[in-house]
Each structure stands twice: as structure tokens, then as C-alpha cells.
Amino acid sequence: MNIFRFAGDMTHLASVLVLLLKIHTIKSCAGVSLKTQELYAIVFATRYLDIFTDFISLYNTFMKLVFLGSSFSIVWYMRSHKIVRRSYDKDQDTFRHYFLIVPCLLLAMIINEKFTFREVLWTFSLFLEAVAILPQLVLLQRTRNIDNLTGQYIFLLGAYRAFYIFNWIYRYFTEPHYVHWIPWIAGLLQTLLYGDFFYYYFHSWKNNKKLQLPA
């Protein structure tokens, strides 16, 4: 474990807690894409298949349970909670996220470190996570208004993977033979997808004005 990875995990944890807190306290999911949340639930479900078979550390297992629990409860809130579901804007959240799942699965069948069930799904979860934010960014551009909590959620979600990139650089130089091109490239692409959001988020913060993405 290194400081970059720990910072990344804490930032990731903060992002899901911000979203869960927003939905739980104000009982609203306005501006939040259910598609992105469903994709994240799939990402964690396919990435943590080893949760019961490989024990890495208490921290690792605990965090896996937190990410699984939070992502599925956010999906439950947005789909089934009688009050929260009313604020879900399904007419605007129309990104066909199944068009992301199939290509990621096919790609994972071709590009992986080992052609086994778990490894292919683990690779699939990396590719899917790289594009999972797209429905949320599309919804943002459609609705144009973005409340602070949703903005913070997306910012933290993008920042966590940026911290992971520093973690990979650190591990590359400190651990011999530590080379994992697949998460590195998927993680880099994922962070780049947040590029324009970061740009507008930073400017709205600097000029202290409401965050608006260009149409």
C-alpha cells in the first residue's frame, strides 16, 4: 500500500458516501444518472468475485464490501425507494449503457492477462469502469444544471483514478516486475474522460459561479 493508492481509495470512498448521503438525506437523486450507478454496480460485482476466495487484507475485504454495498444501495434507492425514484429523470437519462457492456465484454475476452472466467470478468470490470461515467456526463450536459453534491461526486470519482495512476507509477518504480498494462491504460482513458469536466469544474470553482457544462 502506498499513499497514492490510499488517497485514491479514500477519494473513491468519499465519492460514494457523498452520493449516498445526498440521496439519503434530501431523498432526491435529481441530476444523477441511474445508468452510471447500474454500471458501477456491475463493475464492482464483476471485479470483486474473489472477495470470498482470496483474502488480501481486512482493509481490502472491508472496502470491497463498502463499494458493493453502496453501489447496490444507490441503485436500489433510485429504482425502488418511493420518494427518491420520483426525482429520477428517466426521460433525460437515456444513454444506452448496454452498448457499453457488450463491447467491454468482447474486448475483455480478447485482451486479458489470463483467459479464465474470473480474470476475463476482472478485465471487463476495468474496461466498463473506464466508460461508466459517460451516461452521467451526458445527463449533465442535457440537464445543464448541476447541484454541488453531484458535482463533488463526479469530481471525487474522477480524482480517485488520477491518484491510482500515481500509485501505478510509484509501484512500477518501486516493485520489480510490477507491470499491468490493462488497468493502466483503462485507468488513463477513464481519467481523460473526466478531462473537460475537471476543466469546467475548476473554472466554476475559481470564478465561484455555478458549474455549467457547455451544451
Partner: peptide, 10 residues
């Protein structure tokens, strides 16, 4: 290679 690749990152 190893039988099962252990991923220690989240």
C-alpha cells in the same frame, strides 16, 4: 504463470 492472478488493488 500463476494459477490464479491475485489482484491486491480495489
Amino acid at each position: 504463470g500463476q494459477a490464479v492472478i491475485q489482484h491486491d488493488e480495489l
